[in-house]
Amino acid sequence: MEIEIMENIDDLIKKIQPYFSELSVGDFMSSPVVTIQENQTVLYAKELMRSWRISGLPVVDDEGRLKGIISIEDIVHALENGTLESSISEKMSKNVVFLFKYDKIMDAFKKFEMYGYGRFPVIDEVDHHVIGIVTKQDLMLALLKKLSVLYVHDARREEFVGVDIYRSVPKNVKIERTEFEFQIDYKDISLSGTGASELKRFLISKNFSPKFVKRIAIATYEAETNVVIHSNSTGRIKAYVEPEFVEVRVNDNGKGIENIEMAMRDGYSTAPDYVREYGFGAGMGLSNMKKCADRMIILSSKGNGVFVEMHFWRHEDEN
């Protein structure tokens, strides 16, 4: 049965190939990509995969060059053998098959077919830095997107359907679960909080109650401020929304937290003096976040940026 379907898909792909043959890997790869350094532990990889809900991670060296790949299967093996504390470089697959940005979609298809892997890192031709990743899902979505556009632009359809409302189909095709995204890229601390204010507006527009929204906005404000004060890099706020639940992820590419346990303590802060003069850096940020969120995960280590994930369930009294 499955083989039959696959053959049909192959036929279909052949038929529509002229329409998408120009698509390059760079057009549909997921980027930026979550990577892990080779000297990290398998345990850290497991946590990263869990919180990003992904099934594989490209492994990179200090310079961001591709060294290997670690997948959920490797984690399962490590769990079975009790080797979660081993370093990634011991457990990763070293013979990685990768793609280049300018490879055509058919090259990607061939690789998926030939190797049967679930994902292929995309690397820069020159310096071999990992710039993206292509999973089967990316490939499917690229095709669907192209196909749905194609489909809708086919005027003959209207004869059958009779209404042109179907023109809006591609807009409604939900390709990503992210519903809110904000780029933190300012160097001026006084602008901190812009993202949290935007998120607040967004959540109010989704008809969440002010009380629930405030809790989320405060936690996001603190996370955003941390990126601005401490990371010395750019960052990103993402939010996923369900009727009774909101998930906020804030990550940066900065210097990371050396000692998370210390950082979690009330009143502990590494903020510089000029920042404190503005009323920041009181050492209450992380504990405010913890107080507001129903669940909070922080992943960080020196030099690897900070990743914060916070879950908010709507409480009974937050109607």
Binding site: L191, S192, T194, A217
Partner: peptide, 12 residues
Amino acid sequence: HINIIAVAVITG
């Protein structure tokens, strides 16, 4: 500074 407005907006 401008950030007090963000604080005000978020807290109400």
